[in-house]
Amino acid sequence: MADSGSRVSKSSGNSMGKGAMSAEQAITGFNRLWQEQRGLASKAAELEMELNEHSLVIDTLKEVDETCKCYRMVGGVLVEWTVKEVLPALEGNKEQIQKIIETLSQQLQTKGKELSEFLEKYNIRLMGEDEKPAARENSEGTGVKSSSAGVLVS
């Protein structure tokens, strides 16, 4: 996608109405939304890994005698527990992680829709994104779509 060194281009006949965003403002808004989406996706991926770890530990502990000692990190301190004590706590944590992942997934979908609407509203095209044939003919290789905002992100 885009990085902070994005190149912005706009069509030559563009006149900005009152309250409209400039190409630079549009690209800044796009980058902000994109970073927010990336942050959500990164957090969701991190929690998915944690969920997998919880599942692995739970599956392992289910096959161990309940009276066996195990150790769990609590606030940076290693605490001795029995399997019988730690298993319900791990299962509760796993459920909470699943709920958070579901919430993040919904937020990610919402942010994706918001980003798509923003791209469409300000006619932002990403470098390498396929242009419509009519737009390609109008721009003649300039990489710019010739409608109102015509912003290009590289």
Rank of each mutant, 00 (worst) to 15 (best):
S55A: 04
S147P: 05
V64S: 00
K69E: 09
R7K: 11
N31A: 06
S139D: 12
G92H: 10
M73D: 01
S116M: 05
N14S: 12
K43N: 05
G75A: 04
L90D: 03
V79R: 04
K145I: 15
N93K: 12
E48S: 10
A20G: 08
P133I: 00
S105G: 15
H54G: 01
S11M: 11
S55P: 10
L61R: 00
R7Q: 11
G128R: 01
E131H: 08
A89V: 15
R7Y: 12
V77L: 05
S4M: 14
L61D: 00
E36S: 04
D3L: 12
N138G: 08
R38K: 12
K69C: 03
I100C: 08
S154N: 11
C70D: 02
V151Y: 12
G19D: 14
S116Q: 09
V64A: 01
G76Y: 00
S147L: 12
L108T: 04
S55L: 05
M16G: 05
Q107H: 08
E46A: 09
L51Y: 15
K43G: 05
K113L: 14
L108P: 08
S42N: 08
K10G: 14
P88D: 00
E102Q: 14
V8H: 03
N93M: 14
K121S: 12
S4T: 07
Q25D: 15
K84A: 15
W81P: 00
K94M: 08
E36I: 07
H54F: 15
L40Q: 03
I124R: 02
S55M: 06
E91K: 13
E120R: 01
N138C: 10
T103Q: 13
S9Y: 15
K111W: 09
G92V: 10
G19M: 03
E137C: 06
C68G: 01
E120P: 03
G75M: 08
H54Q: 07
R125D: 06
E102I: 13
G39H: 06
D130Y: 07
W34C: 04
S22P: 08
Q107M: 13
L61C: 00
A44C: 10
K62N: 14
T142W: 14
I27D: 02
G39F: 10
I100L: 11
G128T: 01
G17V: 03
T82S: 10
A23N: 02
I27Y: 04
Y71H: 06
A134R: 02
A2K: 06
G39K: 03
S139Q: 14
E36M: 07
F30N: 01
E66L: 06
E36G: 01
W81F: 15
T103N: 09
R7S: 06
E24N: 05
V144H: 03
L33N: 07
V74F: 04
Y122Q: 03
G17P: 12
V57W: 14
E46F: 14
G143V: 00
K94P: 05
M21N: 05
